[in-house]
Amino acid sequence: MAEDLVFYANPMSRARIARWMLEEVGAPYRTEWLTFDGSMKSPEFLAINPMGKVPTIRHGETIVTEAAAICAYLADAFPQAGLAPPTDRRGDYYRWLFFAAGPLEMAVSIKAFGLNVPKERERSIGCGSYGAVMDALSFAVTRHPYITGDTFTAADVYVGAHISWGLQFGTLEPRAEFTAYWDRLKDRPASKRATAIDDEEMHRQLAAAKD
């Protein structure tokens, strides 16, 4: 039942990643829309996620935060969706899913904020250099059609969302291999459904803010 799986979200956030994953899973869920400076910081929600951020899901008594963790959790919780490889073939799955959550997001954020890591300090930071991260991402998306091989998985949801965002807003180098990889994902029905849901709510919130 939808009441068993609750999704806390805002359409102008990383919750879009989790929405895509939820649509890929295909299980019924209920969305609780939150506002950044309002309900997201309420005592009720802080009791669920002390960071006061989305995405967050509650599945029965289990609470999961962080988009990459939500993708991994949902793939395991709903194995019938086929979004995780067998456990003995999860090397690339875990590797690139958490590469995107760690070094990729860190490198992109550093660049977006105009910060500079001195070359002699690159060994001290998890992402190293932006160029090294871009090269590693190129490696990840060019060996197979999808991250783990010929089959789409939750890792493609997470990596694909980052690449889509990065190409749209210019935080990723516009490499041909990034565009080719996203072209293989962008027309998935679940991705389109998720985008439509979030876009509708985004437009509603923006219109309400003007009133």
Rank of each mutant, 00 (worst) to 15 (best):
I70A: 03
V159Q: 13
A132L: 05
Y8S: 06
R30N: 08
P79T: 13
D150N: 15
G128E: 02
P11V: 01
H144R: 14
G126L: 15
I63M: 06
A136W: 00
T142H: 11
I70M: 00
V54D: 00
R193C: 08
L46V: 04
T142L: 14
A194G: 13
R14P: 04
P50K: 11
A155R: 06
G170A: 07
A27S: 13
W96S: 08
T142W: 11
M106A: 14
P86R: 03
A161F: 14
G82Q: 03
R123P: 14
T148Q: 01
G82K: 03
E24W: 09
D135N: 07
T179F: 08
A176E: 15
M106Q: 13
D37Y: 10
A180N: 13
K192F: 10
R30H: 11
L206K: 12
H59G: 04
T179W: 07
A27C: 11
I57V: 13
I57D: 00
T35I: 05
M1W: 08
L83G: 00
C127F: 15
A84G: 01
A107P: 06
D135M: 03
E105P: 09
G102V: 10
L46T: 04
A176W: 07
G102P: 07
M106N: 10
W33Y: 15
T151L: 12
L74N: 05
T148L: 00
G38I: 04
M202F: 11
F36S: 10
M202L: 14
A81Q: 00
Y8V: 12
A155E: 04
N49S: 10
P11W: 09
V108W: 01
A132V: 07
